[in-house]
Design a protein around this nucleic acid. Structure first.
Lengths: 215, 215
DNA sequence: TAGATTGTTAATCGATTAACAATC
DNA sequence: TAGATTGTTAATCGATTAACAATC
């Protein structure tokens, strides 16, 4: 377990979930073997790039002419991504986005389990949203510590994000998934993953502007 | 208007919305001038990187010792990102995530305006979700064409995503913001922006795994 | 065997960082 | 003037792509 894991380039890492989704789809169709060129074609990627990516995470490797054993490849990627052990998480801010995320089915497929929600809204506290209990903010620490939760999802309005972040850090949260459009200040040992919807929007609106100019 | 715009590296482009959020925050605090080193410190970025990024989009440039005029810098970034002209969009799939997105305030701040929602659910059709009317799928084409809408947001279950995507393309949509974990096949001239929540999740769960191993 | 596919080594490309002269 | 900050040129770094030998 403590053996050194192959280190995978960051860009490769970001593509792994895409491979996983694609490969799972192929598996459902009853495919047994899969080759890098086929994956590349299916996802519009460079063939060599895919080959390198897959080689980086596959334990048993592929075979010339036949490619990879699909089942093993999926397991290897899942293992690499850490999807084999489900992680518990809390979500703070049960507004529109927060409650949408609570019921996001993708979580289970990707190794995350939301155990509770938190909000300041008196009307929400004590109720259940999509089957998850909602608690007041001041119980974050107690619940995280007693349940050993180490992942926190921030879906509060921007101006409260830093405050919530601080509470999370004090409560033993190690990794934060931040949906607020704010840069969170955290100690060095805490991981922050920013979900930058604004950046995506920017790319989208920029590229459409270009398209229209080219007409 | 048809002058050649400075071409900005893709990575720079992704950081622009972050700068924008940060700078808007500074503006609210009454700051007048801002320098690259301060932005770098505030966002935990390399100083030279920030200087290059800002230089790439700023029209008037900065002044030694004083830095940039904050107000102009914000306008330049907004202009570059195309936030000065609001774009109309439709959203297909008004489930949890879809309805959360309809009311996502970030849209307005970033130049997007959702004009209508679409769903197959009979109970939703004809109602309003956060002030936006919901229509049946078979009216996508008509509404997009008559209102000249060119951006589509896909928040349907994975297995319907490609089908909806096809309808969008036929309806004159030029850019698609895809929240389904599926690779969409589109003609070359259509832009697809994938919002890969799964990839973020992967990074998060991976990094937390590492942290725990290092204990 | 012939040929598709693998894995690897080398070349290219682009982005980040470092160094530095110019300037207010 | 002195020094902080700009913008630019060069060096480094990492990722992508191309070329190719190995293999089933």
């Amino acid at each position: 377990m403590l053996e050194n894991e192959k280190s995978v380039p960051k860009q490769t890492f970001k593509r792994l979930p895409e491979y996983l989704t694609f490969l799972r789809g192929m598996a459902e169709e009853g495919v047994i073997n899969i080759s890098a060129p086929i994956v590349a074609k299916g996802l519009n990627l460079n063939e060599v790039q895919v080959r390198k990516d897959l080689a980086a995470v596959s334990e048993s490797g592929g075979k010339p002419r036949t490619g990879y054993l699909l089942r093993d490849l999926i397991l290897d990627i899942e293992k690499y991504l850490g999807y084999d052990n489900v992680k518990d998480a809390i979500i703070v801010g049960v507004g529109h986005l927060g409650s949408a995320l609570i019921s996001f089915e993708g979580f289970k497929n990707h190794g995350l389990n939301v155990v509770a929600g938190f909000d300041t809204n008196e009307k929400l506290i004590g109720t259940e949203v999509h089957g998850k209990k909602i608690f007041p903010i001041d119980r974050i620490s107690e619940i995280c510590k007693s349940s050993n939760v180490h992942i926190g999802i921030v879906t509060v309005p921007d101006k409260y994000a830093q405050e919530i972040c601080n509470i999370m850090v004090e409560s033993g949260i190690l990794a934060i998934w931040n949906f607020a459009q704010v840069h969170l200040k955290v100690p060095d040992n805490i991981i922050v993953q920013n979900e930058n919807l604004a950046a995506s929007l920017a790319i989208l609106s920029k590229s459409i502007k270009k398209t229209q100019l080219n007409k």
